[in-house]
Amino acid sequence: MSPDESTPLLEVTQLSVAAPSPNGELPLVREVSLRVGRGERLAIVGESGSGKSLVARSIAGLNRKLTVSGSVRLGGRELLDLSSRQMNLVRRDRISMVLQDPMASLNPLMTVGAQVAEPLIIAGRGRRESRDAAIRMLDELGIPQARSAASGYPHELSGGMRQRVMLAAALIAEPELLIADEPTTALDVRVQRQVLELLHAVAAERSLTVVMITHDLSVVAGFADRVATMYAGRKVHEDRVDRLFAEPAHPYTRALLDAIPRLDDPGAELLPIAGTPPRPGALPSGCSFHPRCPRAVERCAVDVPATTFADDSLEFECHRPLLPLEVVAR
């Protein structure tokens, strides 16, 4: 398969995820479409329970117990049809994941070096060679005394160092796509900054394609090229990062931004979003966000908003969007 330059590396179309429940299938992710070009960085944001992790896990083929439908294409190749064996190969060679909790995803009984080298060994490279590559990788990720750290165990490391080890293991097999699910959430402010800087630097050096998931908009402000907002299992808004922060078209993204206390603007009033997100299976009529939306009108409770493509980067699902000037002017 020769990847055509114009096809995006990752193309998710109408992805739905549902969980079996006593009252039939419970829709958790509803027809989400995403396109991420080579070397591009997409952030997925949204409140807890909005389905961000489920999307990430579906891309990596990790939702075997749930009903996943739609299409996930990596470089033009459909992933959802693959057997779990073939999917293992894809994960080995092309997709890596970094998760929130580095302790839970590191094996406490294996040395750090062995865990970082593992993907190479599985891929059939020699032990010595893999080990040296692991040490180089750890060194590149700023782990002091990488050689001796490699023979240590995960519990001897701090949270930030563990997250670096995870990153090293994720990057060593030179994946095309890196999926990072809340990679900095459990970390202290300073460590969070270090991991973020590192992620940015190594991704830039390798022109990695990254899908980063977070509930903290600030974290992706400088990292992502584009941001997609999810609400109640749907992607409701997507835009270039600058415009999304400056002029959020969707009232939900706007509300998320207004709720963040800002170090650079401490006097600003904090505006909480009223109410709570709906539970899967108990969605409101019309637009799922309307009961909490400050801009909602009668129509919002009745009609489900269709996806609007305002220009080549902005899309949203809203009857009463806050259109950016640039779009209005056209």
Binding site: A19, L26, E47, S48, G49, D188, P280, A282
Partner: peptide, 14 residues
């Protein structure tokens, strides 16, 4: 409480 429990808004402690 099952799958649909309102454990939303809950994040792992840092």
């Amino acid at each position: 409480t099952s799958v649909t429990a309102p454990t939303v808004n809950e994040r792992p402690a840092s």
